[in-house]
Design a binder for these strands. Sequence first.
DNA 1: CCTAAAATGGAGAACGTTACACATAGAACG
DNA 2: CGTTCTATGTGTAACGTTCTCCATTTTAGG
Lengths: 347, 347
Amino acid sequence: MDGGGETKTKDVGQLGRVTIRTVAAHSGVSVAAVSKVLRNAYGVSDNLRNKVTASIDALGYRPSRSARGLRGRTFTIGVLLIDIANPFLPQVIAGVNGVLAPSNIRAMIGVGQAETQLETSLIESMIDYKMDGVILVAPRLPSDVIATFARDIPIVVVGYHDPGAQNFDTVNCDDEAGAALAVQALLAQGLSDIGMLTVEQKVCYDVSVVQQRERGYRDAMAAAGLAKQARLHRLPENFATHDAALSAFLDDPERPAAVFCWSDLDAIPLLNLAAARGIGVPDQLAIIGYDNSPLGALNLISLSSVDQDGQGLGALATETLLSRIEGRKAALHLKIPPSLVLRRSAG
Amino acid sequence: MDGGGETKTKDVGQLGRVTIRTVAAHSGVSVAAVSKVLRNAYGVSDNLRNKVTASIDALGYRPSRSARGLRGRTFTIGVLLIDIANPFLPQVIAGVNGVLAPSNIRAMIGVGQAETQLETSLIESMIDYKMDGVILVAPRLPSDVIATFARDIPIVVVGYHDPGAQNFDTVNCDDEAGAALAVQALLAQGLSDIGMLTVEQKVCYDVSVVQQRERGYRDAMAAAGLAKQARLHRLPENFATHDAALSAFLDDPERPAAVFCWSDLDAIPLLNLAAARGIGVPDQLAIIGYDNSPLGALNLISLSSVDQDGQGLGALATETLLSRIEGRKAALHLKIPPSLVLRRSAG
DNA sequence: CCTAAAATGGAGAACGTTACACATAGAACG
DNA sequence: CGTTCTATGTGTAACGTTCTCCATTTTAGG
């Protein structure tokens, strides 16, 4: 039988793709039995399992995900990223891949480029591919649109504060607490003239991390008896115009002595522009960013920043999605705590 | 009939997924006719096409990619990235997405994390999903392994110099020319004591961009009559130990007056470490990197760097893959020219 | 008008796997 | 030994679409 098996291996190799039928013939059992082994279904003897597993190994069989998608699981999850250049996102992906590595589940990533139509199209592609579930990272989609998708596929959303959602899960850093950490650190340094640089976000503002960070800033200022001094400086939505807006902020004669910036994406350019103007950081302007991106750690930049543990977020979102895929219906809304990393720009 | 069509829309919405059978019934034609319309196949009258298209729109029908994968095209291409944190890669992805945007083809990305096993597993997933083709970006896979995969799926490889490959295409920046640009710029500044910082790469060194950049450096030095002075300083393969190696390079009493660095990934930390040591850049050490990553443009860093047009690479790779998917068999090996961006670190 | 060629639309099987129903063998119990 | 229960393995249809073959209709030319 073994010799025959080897002969068949060679013949099969010339006949095209190894299918479940090939494995069944090779191990002398039915197609349904092979399928049961593959799905780890109940009602399989050890003997049969060993026979089938040996044939799978000998033939190098891999199931077709397309065929599986018609009836069962594909062992793939989709991850939709708002864009790929944000230095926070590699950490999230590392967290996702870290959880999946020991399994046969793989992550496929779509990059939405902060365009609602492309985001929608990519989610649809993931549904049409019958992926087992989807993680959305900072999507620009209204909650009811996500809920509609959630009828077709399990969904976990990261960087999206919608605690009332019932059809999908959310996993977030506690952005209010993060902003408060920044304000408190500046206060602890004797600074009280503390502004916040935020950014315009017309789409989905109510569920955005931006709104949460603004609220955290305002509440922390109020808690310190500085509610009247709290000031938001709002950058325009179009990222390409941020340098001009940051320059205007720096050149404003009423510029605060310290600033909490909504993201390292703008804190680092701010620091850079300040240096070019001879504005001393932190002496004339203390700066705290958000995300603790790796480039902020460079000595030449040395940005203080709130760390939201992107890797932890990615890992938790993945575990949450896997539990939803397994059948959980009740929505989970999870928050992880931020931390503050102090560097030269403040403290 | 129109009223009946509307009634059916509502009923179908309650019966689950809209399938090709739903569309056929709605438009009063056969399943095969609808399929012909979807595939833009020959033998479809305008009248029938209009009827079917109207039904598709009315029902919001989207074909199942799983089902399509069993027999036809899925209109999805896979992109395998070596890792996601490399600042060059967002440009590549932007190039890919730019070419695909007007079509219904979508890109799904896998992140290999420079691990051969994970890379292999992700490519297999893309094959098992019956994606139409795959772009591999700087893969750590031997040429014969890629050729084996290319028997199952159209492949274009980026950042991988294998001009003899017959079963897959390559799209690269001319890395030799890029290195030469850097050397020539330093020579033009009167510098002749020019070293190169490169990195150990045991896997696939022969096809690597590293080897090409080393060769370009050596040839340019030789062309300037400086062959004897050409020196490579090799960083270890483990990225986590690069800071220590860069520090050792900076502390070496025989440190050259200028250095061409294989990548901004190490050029920026080098610049950072030099500043921390009070080493004047470019006066005591001129530095040119490779990739022209966005952070190198920050005033606080201001790194001179070879630009390899990541976006152009991504776009060209995508177009090349699409032509291979359409049936081209002859291998293409394309190179695009680099350019040099001079900033404060050299120039 | 007739004939031949081209265009059109449909029937039905293929694609590769899963899930369900059920026949049968083996185990447990009186 | 006979009956009941449990475990195992199999047959077969479903899943949603594409592809091939071919019957019929339409078009073109004499």
